[in-house]
């Protein structure tokens, strides 16, 4: 009996270690065992800081992100090509607006720090204050650091994360530099968790790369909706709220499909959009080229996998 208890203890502690390594919330059994503190106190603060998340208001995305954007830790947002940097920058800025707004609702204005590698802001343009303002950001509290090398940018990010004043820290880098490898991203992640600051790593024109981020999202451009008219109809041919096509590349939950969002700067929140509403010819092309689903089987129960799903063979060449 005693032996069994010891074994159970070992298993629990192992599970806890694994959960800590994976930055995961503890499973029920372990949590129950852990909260039963000998002194009878619950570790309130620790638990609260671990669970700080910011819901994005779009159910499919929030499900994948396990509730929302983690407010202490690193999240990576990347785009594949420089020309898509506008969309990705828009998504990152929208997250920064949400973080800043959350703090503002609590009563204090916190600045957003945008650290940009010089090359990145030369290739994709500098942040533009009037544009940021109309996007919903408080530009009175927007600080921008332009820095030459990635190493220096990492130093600035690390310093910023240890200062508990920023609503969000954005680290914009270009490509996949060797000096931001797994260990460096781990270091930043730990710093961000300790400081309780959301760190958004914005990788411009970069490949998928293993990192310590909670989540990695790829942002692709998406056709915007149209401007609504006062009578409820849409103004034909106009360009409405900015829209994004989000692909979840790294998450603990199963990322089923592509998620399409639009950002409403006035309401300062995301709204899901139905992609087939908008006019995007390349969607039609894709559906024309994809393999037709087989007809439903007669002799078996339905629910078989659709043929034509691609597994992770992208790098096989």
């Amino acid at each position: 009996m005693a032996e069994k208890a010891v074994q159970r203890e070992t298993v629990l502690s192992l599970r806890e270690t694994i959960a800590q390594i994976e930055n995961r919330r503890l499973p029920g059994v372990v949590r129950a065992a852990k909260t039963a503190d000998p002194a009878g106190f619950r570790r309130q603060g620790e638990e609260a800081s671990r669970n700080k998340i910011l819901p994005l208001g779009v159910p499919p995305l929030d499900d994948v992100l396990e509730g929302g954007l983690p407010l202490a830790g690193m999240t990576e947002i990347r785009n594949a090509e420089t020309r898509d940097a506008g969309a990705a920058a828009g998504f990152v800025t929208a997250l920064a607006v949400l973080c800043q707004w959350r703090k503002k609702e609590k009563g204090h204005l916190a600045p957003v720090l945008w650290i940009s590698q010089g090359l990145a802001s030369r290739e994709a343009g500098l942040p533009y204050a009037p544009g940021l303002k109309s996007y919903g950001l408080d530009i009175e509290r927007f600080l921008f650091v332009s820095i030459r090398t990635v190493k220096e940018a990492l130093w600035v990010a690390e310093t910023a994360l240890s200062v508990p004043v920023f609503a969000a820290v954005v680290l914009e880098i270009r490509g996949n530099p060797a000096c931001l490898a797994l260990s460096e991203s781990r270091r930043l992640h730990v710093r961000a968790r300790a400081g309780g600051v959301p760190l958004l790593v914005f990788r411009q024109a970069g490949e998928e790369e293993a990192s310590s981020a909670f989540f990695r999202l790829q942002i692709k451009p998406a056709s915007a909706g149209e401007r609504p008219l006062p009578d409820g109809s849409m103004l034909c041919g106009s360009i409405g709220h900015p829209a994004f096509h989000v692909l979840v590349e790294k998450s603990r939950a199963y990322a089923s499909a592509d998620i399409f969002l639009e950002w409403n700067a006035h309401d300062r929140r995301f709204y899901p959009i139905e992609q087939h509403q908008s006019v995007a010819p390349q969607v039609d092309e894709q559906s024309a080229n994809s393999v037709d689903p087989f007809s439903a089987p007669v002799d078996r129960s339905s629910g078989a996998d659709q043929v034509g799903r691609l597994l992770a063979f992208a790098r096989a060449s």
């Binding site: 940097a85 506008g86 920058a89 828009g90 800025t93 204005l109 030369r122 994709a124 343009g125 500098l126 942040p127 533009y128 204050a129 009037p130 544009g131 940021l132 303002k133 109309s134 996007y135 530009i139 009175e140």
Partner: peptide
């Protein structure tokens, strides 16, 4: 110090990033 930015100076429909 809070110094509100003049709304007139920020027209709608400005891009998020601009080339120097």
């Amino acid at each position: 110090e809070s110094r509100p930015v003049d709304e007139k100076a920020c027209p709608e429909n400005r891009p998020l990033r601009i080339f120097t």
